[in-house]
Amino acid sequence: MLLRVCHLYPDLLNLYGDRGNVLAFLARCRWRGIPAIVHRVQKGEQVNFQEMDFLFLGGGSDREQNLMTKDLMRRADALREAIEGGLVVLAICGGYQLLGHYYRTREGQIIPGLGLLDLFTVAGPRRLIGNIAVEIELDGKSWRITGFENHAGRTYLGQIAPLGRVLAGHGNNGEDGLEGARYKNVFCSYLHGPLLPKNPPLTDYLIQAALKRRGLPFSLEPLDDRLETAANQVMLRRLGVG
């Protein structure tokens, strides 16, 4: 048993402490004795998505995102196949937008996305910035996750479920009260800050999903999460939803 974590374009998509998500996934495997390794896949390098257990796609600046989009387009079919087969994916900010149909800039230019998820993004007049709390449901249990959002894009979902409902903050577009997107084992969110270390129930859910996909025993022993819970509580209280 070995979980393979794929960090796509770690040098290009590395805004806002994104690597914290990869660190958290690995740490929570390690603390339970589940062997896990990370593959840092750069532009132009080979990767077989089927062999991967967890794929992380972060956000970058506009310049960096353009450099990477072309490279990812070539991999779209392979990625689609892996996603349909249950590959666990976490995509944040720019990575999230990229999985949709397109991104429309302020000037009206359409930048095509991979079209893997039924959603699209439109650049708004000002950035949506601030701390955010979202209620999500995992295996029928509801959790309050916290993070920080900073995005100009407004994302609208088609026939696809959101990750959760905004308790405080803006979310996908600041209008419909929805945050992120969820399809099979793909999780998308505007919460960086980063998301996984601060919200262990979500991290553990992703680890379990990865284990299940391989037909491995997936019950996880509980960890001491007092620090994480305290950090989460501080933010929920501050946002008035604690």
Partner: peptide
């Protein structure tokens, strides 16, 4: 103001809990 989160950061960096 973000003491707890700093603690989380150190924990995930591999600093033992009894030193945080």
């Amino acid at each position: 103001q973000r003491a707890e989160e700093m603690g989380v950061r150190l924990k995930y960096a591999g600093v033992p809990l009894d030193k945080i």
